[in-house]
Each structure stands twice: as C-alpha cells, then as structure tokens.
C-alpha cells in the first residue's frame, strides 16, 4: 500500500499529557508521514491542540502542563532535557487558530524569524527570503506594494496567510496547523486549502480541523481523537468511507460531537 512506502517523519509513543492534576492525553501512539498532510479530528476539548503542541514543545510555555512519553522526529527524541527547543521550533513551524501577526510591518513580520536565527547575511538575502516566503504563502501579489504597512491592517484571511508565510520563512520541515481556517470565510478557506495542497510537496503538515470536508479535501491520513485518547488512525479514504470504529463512524456522520 501507499502508506507503507512513505517514510515516517514524526512518531509519538505512549504520550501522556497532564494539565496540573487533570490528564488531557492518554497513551497516544501516532505516526506521521513525511511530505504528507495528516489531519486530526475529534470533538472539542479532546486534546487535538494539546497533541500538536507536543510536537514543537509549545506546551513548555504553559506552567502547569507536564508531558510524559516520547515524540521522535527523524528518529531523534525531542522530549529530552538537552534538546534545544529553539532549534526544534525552527524545524517545526506552527500556525494558530486565530491569526496572530505581530504589531509590525508585513515585511518585519516575515523577517523576524530569519533575523533571530541569523538566516540572512544582508538586505538582499532578506528581501529574497521575504519574497519567497510570501510567494509560497500565495500572498505576494496582494501585498508586494504595501510591505511597510502593519500586518494587522490585512484582512483575516490575508493575516492567516501572512502567519503561514512567517512560519515558512525559517524553512521548517514540519508545519503544524491548529484549525487555521476556523476564523475565515469560505473563499479565504479555499485559498488556504489550495496552499496546503501545494505545500505538502516540500513540507510535512499536521492539521487540526473541525471540518470533515476539509480533512477529506486536504489530508492523506486522518487521526480521530476522543476524550484524550486516539481512537482510530488510518488513511483518510478509509476513515471516511469505512471506519473500523463505531465511534469514528458516529462522529463523522455527525451523530455526536
């Protein structure tokens, strides 16, 4: 099968996550393939965001959050003390549910990552990075004449693409997307979906979504979460046409959730 041919990029093993005393994820085992889109679905509060935040260790930011178990990227454990989160996050970019451009110009929004990582040696290189990132995010044509305007002056959909461009600017290998379209209208959503389709040629993408249709449209593999447990993972085709689990069936047909 196609699945077996793909190389595994990220592998979560026996992952448990706690917020204080409350356990949010139970024994998660999940493989994510390289250069493919993996969708995570499940009812609200089931731990999807918590899971993808484990992949770039964003949960470190939350004081009360404790992560146990292992996550490997390219076979290297990331949950160890000596792993450098800064380098990790450079490799694993993230796009959030609500667009969060910095209160800076469009240009500076993109340039921020390369500057802190020292990716550009001079102004020309930086211009180049900004242009390619914006082009990859399909935003260049809309903003090329107004790079000095604040990022917050863009529309919601444009802002979200700006955030995608910002994530691309440091050349990550993995992009995590937490409901990237939930704040957007159908047209902007369509644009972003198109973009995701395009990006999967060079990046490994994990996307959390509440829309079954979106999962079907963009992803090759889907995982279904429920109450902090992973119920079923399989190719998207299989999950939506012929799920093995009754709960998955109920969820995708809209009987609960």
């Amino acid at each position: 099968m196609e699945l077996n041919n793909s190389k595994i990029k990220i592998q979560a093993k026996n992952l448990n996550v706690y917020y204080g005393k409350k356990q949010a994820l139970f024994n998660i085992n999940l493989d994510i393939n390289q250069k493919e889109v993996t969708a995570l679905i499940g009812p609200s509060g089931c731990g999807k965001s918590t899971f993808i935040r484990c992949i770039n260790r964003m949960n470190d930011v939350i004081d009360i959050c404790k992560v146990e178990g292992s996550v490997e990227i390219d076979g290297a454990e990331i949950n160890e003390k000596n792993v450098d989160v800064v380098t990790l996050r450079e490799k694993v970019g993230m796009v959030f549910q609500k667009p969060n451009p910095f209160p800076k110009s469009i240009y500076d929004n993109i340039a921020y990552g390369p500057i802190i990582h020292g990716a550009a040696e001079n102004k020309d290189q930086m211009d180049n990075i900004v242009e390619t990132s914006l082009k990859k995010a399909a935003l260049w044509d809309e903003v090329k004449d107004r790079l000095n305007e604040p990022g917050t002056s863009l529309s919601g959909g444009q802002q979200q693409r700006l955030c995608i461009a910002r994530a691309l600017s440091v050349n990550p290998e993995v992009i995590l997307m937490d409901e990237p379209c939930s704040a957007l209208d159908p047209i902007a959503t369509a644009k972003i979906e198109e973009l995701i389709d395009d990006l999967k040629k060079s990046y490994t993408i994990v996307i959390v979504t509440h829309s079954m249709a979106q999962a079907v449209r963009v992803s090759q593999k889907t995982g279904f979460f429920h109450l902090g447990k992973i119920i079923e993972v399989d190719s998207t085709d299989k999950i939506f046409k012929n799920p093995a689990n009754k709960m998955t069936q109920d969820y995708i047909t809209g009987r609960f959730g």
Partner: peptide, 21 residues
C-alpha cells in the same frame, strides 16, 4: 498571549520574544 506563542513557534527565545514582540 497569542503574540508570544506566535514568536515562540518560530523558535524565538523568551528574551527575543519580549524584546522584539
């Protein structure tokens, strides 16, 4: 908080996030 998370997510350290965002 979302601005801070946006900055951490591209691999900024805490002080870089504070200073620049």
């Amino acid at each position: 908080q979302s601005l801070r998370e946006g900055s951490y997510a591209i691999g900024a350290t805490k002080s870089e996030t504070i200073k620049k965002v």
